[in-house]
Amino acid sequence: MASGDDEAGLVRRAKAGEAEAFGALVLAHQQFVYNLAWRAVGNEQEAEDLAQEAFVRAWQALPNFRGQSQFRTWLYRIVTNLCYNRLPRLRRDLAALGVAEAADLPDAPETNPAVEAEASELRAWLHRAIDELPEGYRMLVMLRFQQGLPYEEIAGILSLPLGTVKTGLFRARARLRQALSALEETAA
């Protein structure tokens, strides 16, 4: 992905109408944009169409981008709004999370080599469990853990209160923990 300075330059050139600069931004962000759409709609073709539409809309709206947020935040918000339009239930489900358990999750902990070595099968199983989480949880997980975004930025992207973002991530983690616990009890 382009570094901050490079990206600011690309955005400036794209705003001036340089399609090549926008093409570089597309290449830098296409993987995450596609994955965000795919985790939301759960269908490869629809995700590609949605990602394509998001980039076209970003290009058209670029003159109105004033740099008050990062380009990625602005772009992901476009993707999210398209997902909300495609799945109106998604916005309702996320908003319904409320702020009941708004606990901060710890930041990404130090990698433990022992856990890394032992856990490849378990990790694959848990990845499948993440796939089975509701779409809203999957989007939260993507933004927080794959993109490493702070809670405030995620709240801005998803147009949700900060507490709802924290609650959603807390519950996503709790569900995985519960599923893992059930798996261990079954195996025992």
Binding site: T111, V115, A119, R123, R144, Q146, L176
Partner: peptide, 11 residues
């Protein structure tokens, strides 16, 4: 294990 899976969830 959960933290690890969340961090390594593949793109």
């Amino acid at each position: 294990a959960v933290d690890d899976a969340l961090r390594t969830y593949p793109l």
